[in-house]
């Protein structure tokens, strides 16, 4: 994340953070459905693990406020998601889904990827 993006995010958190602080009816299942419906999976993978088109969204998923800021004002390749097409409540559901995803194994625990280290050195 660029410094300008971070600044935007912090500003957004100050201004709108309270909106997300309100208790919501958050649903992991609904989050997964929304994640797929609005096409997050295209760039970030079906379980948010990322690839060259989009970075991993899990583990260490950002809070809903930060994600909302990013998708509303994305300056880069990331398509902009105005509130009309992705609400704050839907973002909260998506975050819940991403937080529920089982973590990936560590690279060193995977034989093929571990072997690369010795090949590289």
């Amino acid at each position: 994340m660029k410094i300008t993006d971070l600044a935007n995010t912090l500003t957004f958190l100050c201004l709108f953070g309270a909106k997300f602080a309100v208790a919501q009816d958050i649903s992991i299942e609904r989050g997964e459905q929304t994640y797929m419906r609005v096409g997050c999976y295209e760039c970030h993978g079906t379980d948010g693990k990322g690839n060259e088109a989009g970075p991993p969204l899990t583990p260490d998923t950002l809070p809903p406020e930060a994600i909302a800021n990013f998708v509303r004002f994305s300056p880069g390749r990331m398509p902009v998601y105005p509130e009309e097409i992705l609400s704050d409540a839907e973002i909260a559901d998506i975050v819940a889904y991403l937080e529920s995803v089982k973590p990936s194994p560590d690279a060193d625990s995977i034989d093929i990827l571990r072997a690369l280290v010795s090949e590289e050195n």
Binding site: G45, T46, D47, K49, G50, N51, P56, K102, S104, P105, D106, A107, I110, L113, L116, V117
Partner: peptide, 14 residues
């Protein structure tokens, strides 16, 4: 190498 591990066990296959 670290990124390659992300989604290693996912289906569809990464």
């Amino acid at each position: 190498r670290q990124l390659a591990a992300s989604g290693w066990n996912s289906s569809p296959v990464s």
